[in-house]
Design a binder for these strands. Structure first.
Lengths: 227, 227
DNA sequence: TGCGGCCTTGACGGTGTCTTGACGCCCGTG
DNA sequence: CACGGGCGTCAAGACACCGTCAAGGCCGCA
């Protein structure tokens, strides 16, 4: 299911969007100001962000920059401002699309689908949804994992961490990036979270958790998943 | 350099686009009908396609479908048709963006940059960060090194030093610059750090560490990486 | 209200990395 | 020929980092 974050300070617009999106089976979160938007983006990891530029507490462009600081989630700007300069500024700050109010709902939905399509293209290519090692198998799409044929239960945080690693097979993933991907941009230094959850993953998936063969530690740098 | 395919049957629009794009250092191809557009897309592998929907020989949506049959190159539609239905149809056929004529050139360029940015995110350069000598190979992105096929583990400091050298192949890198890059601006005079870690690098990567062939000392000045 | 998952947080010991000093070699210079 | 600067090598101590364990808090559920 696709999760969408709607950011707008006008309740009636939010309501209209939420109703339309939920009717099309999207999962929707809503925020009414920039601070909340940034927090929800970090907490909920939406697949697409619909962002109004006229927010009460901060400039919309700063919200874009804040989100772009740690993720490339598609951002579609909704704005009453028609000027070309505003559009250029928002797009160059990192927005993916710019729709002027008032807008036709079906056009917005089509642009949403386009953004969603690009994102899923992007995700599928680097790693097939299913992968296999000699000790365990992981199906990212179905959220199922098993070791030597027997199913293994993973908690949400364990899944996030596993995905962040498995998405880059053979590549080193830095501690900062793992913390950002799994816990959000404000947890840059809490490396003990990583240690605790790495231990959990290894206990659940590795044959010999004390001598990990697939989740390798690179001291001082990060972790690496070896297929 | 980014290559762009412009598809439009109105010569003056094509001319205006080509001039504007070339002035911004894009490489531009032009096509005046759908058949040519499809052929050129296949031959020239553009990085972005700018597509007018009103073509003489075929429906613009079919051109989108034809391109989408084998590539996900970003497609930005330019069209005089403002109706919401047309937009939805084009976007759902696989277009990435839809701009109505007449359009502001700077807005189009901003949307172009957005498309280009997404594309380069997607590529993530698996190639550029990899280099090879007769003795060892280094993959900077994956943080992996190997000598004659067997993996070699490097510590964070060793990686930093290796990167600082390898980023300037064949060029001399001064001691001051190395110390600043690896240990920070306050370590300008601790040249023995360099000696210790150069020795480590050579021991781990050179075939004959006592007679280094790729990490060359320039007495009194600095070090040089020879590919 | 009590229970069970899950996440957070702190503490501890062991291992590997970094820092630092000492020594010997080579080479250019006086 | 003696000397000194620059470099490579080695080893030992200090230190950071990692894996591990366990306790506490929060939330959903019975």
């Amino acid at each position: 299911m696709t999760r969408i974050l709607v950011v707008d300070d006008e309740p009636q617009i939010v309501r209209a969007l939420v109703i339309n999106l939920r009717a099309r089976r999207y999962e929707v979160d809503a925020a009414y100001d920039g601070t909340t938007a940034l927090r929800m983006a970090a907490d909920r990891h939406p697949d697409v962000v619909l962002l109004d530029l006229g927010l009460p507490d901060m400039d919309g462009v700063d919200v874009i920059a804040g989100i772009r600081g740690w993720t490339r989630v598609p951002i579609i700007v909704l704005s009453a401002r028609h000027s070309s300069d505003e559009k250029v500024e928002a797009l160059d700050a990192g927005a993916d699309d710019y729709v002027t109010k008032p807008f036709a709902m079906d056009e917005l939905l089509a642009r949403l689908r386009a953004a969603e399509r690009r994102r899923s293209d992007q995700e599928q290519e680097p790693s097939a949804a299913r992968l296999e090692t000699d000790a365990f198998t992981v199906d990212l799409a179905a959220k199922k994992a098993s070791r030597h044929g027997v199913d293994v239960r993973l908690t949400p945080t364990e899944w996030h961490l596993l995905e962040a690693l498995v998405r880059n097979p053979g590549r080193l993933v830095s501690q900062k990036q793992l913390l950002r991907d799994v816990w959000g941009p404000t947890y840059r230094t809490e490396t003990n979270y990583l240690r605790v959850y790495m231990a959990q993953l290894r206990r659940k998936l590795e044959d010999d958790p004390t001598r990990p063969r697939h989740f390798v530690t690179e001291p001082g740098m990060g972790y690496r998943f070896e297929p």
